[in-house]
C-alpha cells in the first residue's frame, strides 16, 4: 500500500507528504504528475511530483487544501495509506531531454508561484544534480506562503523572492520582479513558469513581450489522467490538446489561459458543497443557498 511516511505542514493549508510508492519513484522524472486517491471512495486528484528517491522508493507530494478531497488528505497521518497512487503520468520536462552542455549554455529562469514551487523544485534539483545552474523567482501573496526556502536556495544560483504585500523580497508579484531584473540588465533565454493559472497568464504576457521562450505546466481538471476521458483538454495555439498525454508542459505563449481559467471553475459549486458537508457535517443547517 501507499504509506505516508512523513507529513509536514509547510504553511497555511499547505502540506508535504512523503509516500511509499517504489514503482513510481523508480520511473518519475521532473515535470511529471501523479493521481492519488485518499481512500476507496475518494476522488482521483492529480498532483505534481515534488521529489522522488529511486533508492528508498519514496515520492514527495506538496498540496494546498482547496477542496473537500485535499482537506480530507490533509487529515491523514503518518502510517496511514493512500488507497491509490498512480504514475508517473504526463511527459517529463523537455529540459531533461536536452544535452547537458546545451543546458549549461542557456540562461534559464524559473518562476514559481504558491505550491507551484513544489514541481519547480523537482526540476531545479535535477538541473542542479546535473551541474546546471539556474535562477528562480519565487512568488507568493505573503511571506508565510513561501515554502521550501532553504531547499530552493540549495539548488539555484540566484533565488529571488516576490511577495504581493512586500513582506519578503521584492514588493510585488513575479512580473514586477522579472521586470526589475530585466531593467537591471539581467537576461534570460528560456523561462519555465509553474503556479496558479492567473500568474502563468501574466508572466507569459511579460516573457512574450521580453522575447523569452516560455514553458508552463498546466494542472487541469482530470479523471483518469491516462488519455481516456478528455476532461483535461485545453486550447494551445487554437488546437485542442490534452494535458495528461500531450502535456502537462506547453508553450506558454500559445496556451489560452482565459479558457483554462474558465474550465477550472467547472465543478466549483459541487466542490464547495462537498467541502461544507465535510467541514460542517450534520451541523450545517442550510442558509448557504446552495445545498439541497
Amino acid at each position: 500500500m501507499f504509506e505516508i511516511v512523513t507529513k509536514k505542514c509547510l504553511g497555511p493549508k499547505v502540506f508535504l507528504m512523503e509516500i511509499k510508492a517504489p514503482m513510481i519513484a523508480k520511473k518519475a522524472m521532473p515535470g511529471q504528475f501523479l493521481i492519488v486517491r485518499a481512500d476507496k471512495d475518494g476522488e482521483r486528484i492529480p498532483l505534481t511530483v515534488c521529489d522522488f528517491d529511486r533508492d528508498t522508493g519514496i515520492i514527495t507530494i506538496v498540496y494546498q487544501t482547496v477542496g473537500a478531497e485535499t482537506e480530507r488528505m490533509s487529515r491523514m497521518n503518518e502510517g496511514e495509506c493512500f488507497a491509490d497512487v498512480v504514475g508517473p503520468l504526463g511527459n517529463p520536462s523537455d529540459l531533461v531531454d536536452l544535452p547537458i552542455e546545451e543546458l549549461k549554455a542557456k540562461k534559464i529562469l524559473f518562476i514559481a508561484g504558491g505550491v507551484g514551487t513544489a514541481p519547480v523544485y523537482n526540476q531545479l534539483k535535477w538541473l542542479h544534480d546535473n551541474g546546471v545552474e539556474v535562477d528562480c523567482i519565487q512568488g507568493a501573496r505573503t511571506k508565510d506562503l513561501l515554502i521550501f526556502e532553504d531547499e530552493m536556495k540549495a539548488v539555484t544560483k540566484n533565488l529571488y523572492f516576490a511577495t504581493d504585500d512586500g513582506s519578503y523580497g521584492i514588493h510585488g508579484n513575479v512580473c514586477v520582479a522579472l521586470q526589475k531584473l530585466w531593467d537591471e540588465g539581467v537576461r534570460y533565454d528560456h523561462c519555465v513558469v509553474i503556479g496558479p493559472v492567473i500568474m502563468m497568464k501574466f508572466a507569459c504576457q511579460l516573457t512574450k513581450q521580453l522575447g523569452i521562450p516560455t514553458v508552463v505546466s498546466m494542472n487541469t481538471i482530470m479523471v483518469d489522467g491516462t488519455g481516456m476521458c478528455g476532461a483535461c483538454r485545453l486550447l494551445v495555439g487554437g488546437e485542442v490538446k490534452f494535458a495528461c498525454v500531450d502535456g502537462p508542459e506547453f508553450d506558454g505563449h500559445a496556451v489560452d489561459f482565459d479558457q483554462a481559467l474558465q474550465r477550472s471553475r467547472l465543478y466549483k459549486t459541487q466542490e464547495g458543497e462537498l467541502m461544507l458537508r465535510l467541514t460542517e457535517g450534520d451541523t450545517h443547517s442550510g442558509g448557504c443557498g446552495m445545498c439541497s
Partner: peptide, 14 residues
C-alpha cells in the same frame, strides 16, 4: 466547444 458544460461521453460516463 470549450464552453463549461461540454463534456466527452468518456468523461461523463467515467
Amino acid at each position: 466547444e470549450q464552453a463549461l458544460g461540454v463534456f466527452s461521453a468518456n468523461e461523463y460516463l467515467t
